[in-house]
């Protein structure tokens, strides 16, 4: 699916100053991924450090956490895979992104007025996407190896060693991305959180953060009119 395929410009409320940014399906999948990731994070962190093992009690205790973690990992992997098939095109880095990336300092310092216009996602979002995708693949593969507690022969024990390291490193990387993602989605970029809940953003929000996308959507919308 590409930006061109975005079907609606109207919001559900019909208000002209709101634009649909995420379809219901996208929002559902995002939250499947997000909530499962949170579960994975809680349980994973419980296994990661004795100082965090109490986290396992939040979700039913150690054995339950151990039971749930790999299955939830599969859920998360499916969600990530869905996102990949849905957003793969949107996530390609464009020349506009590259231009935008040079001004990333302005973005961090909230000097957004200095930023060149970009499409539906900025390069940070895109890199987060790819991070989660490749991290997810690494987590999935290493996770499956770790899941087969009984089935890896002694002569293949290097696989166990590789798996624990890969899983930990991949998890840490995704956690890094996750922290930034959550921070930006909730605290830093006002409106972002709403958008992934309700699916809408304001025209001003869209114009400010994703002008090219806004213009594209507006164009499509006016053509529709």
């Amino acid at each position: 699916m590409s930006t061109n395929a975005l079907p609606h410009t109207r919001t559900q409320s019909g208000s002209e100053d709101r634009i649909l940014r995420y379809t219901l399906a996208e929002r559902v999948v995002h939250w499947v991924a997000g909530l499962s990731y949170i579960y994975l994070l809680i349980t994973g962190l419980a296994f990661w450090s004795p100082y965090l093992f109490w986290l396992a009690d939040l979700v039913g205790g150690g054995p339950t956490a151990r039971f749930g973690h790999p299955w939830m990992g599969l859920v998360w992997s499916v969600a990530i895979f869905w996102m990949y098939t849905a957003w793969r095109e949107d996530m390609r880095t464009t020349p506009a992104d590259r231009k935008w990336a040079k001004h990333v300092g302005d973005y961090i310092r909230n000097h957004d007025e200095n930023l060149p216009p970009i499409g539906r996602f900025n390069i940070g979002q895109k890199q987060f996407f790819w991070l989660m995708l490749f991290g997810g693949i690494a987590l999935l593969l290493s996770g499956v190896a770790m899941w087969l507690v009984n089935d890896i022969p002694w002569s293949w024990r290097w696989l166990r060693y590789t798996a624990v390291l890969v899983h930990a490193v991949a998890a840490l990387l995704t956690i890094g991305g996750f922290i930034i993602h959550v921070y930006m989605g909730t605290a830093m970029v006002r409106g972002g959180f709403t958008s992934i809940i309700r699916g809408e953003v304001s025209v001003a929000w869209a114009r400010m953060h994703h002008r090219l996308w806004y213009e594209h959507v507006k164009g499509a919308s006016s053509r529709e009119k």
């Binding site: 007025e113 605290a187 006002r190």
Partner: peptide, 19 residues
């Protein structure tokens, strides 16, 4: 970052309503 820079507010016209 939040303490130093705070949230991004939508400028260039009306501000985000549901901040």
């Amino acid at each position: 970052h939040y303490l130093r820079f705070g949230p991004k507010t939508v400028h260039n016209g009306e501000s985000e309503k549901r901040s």
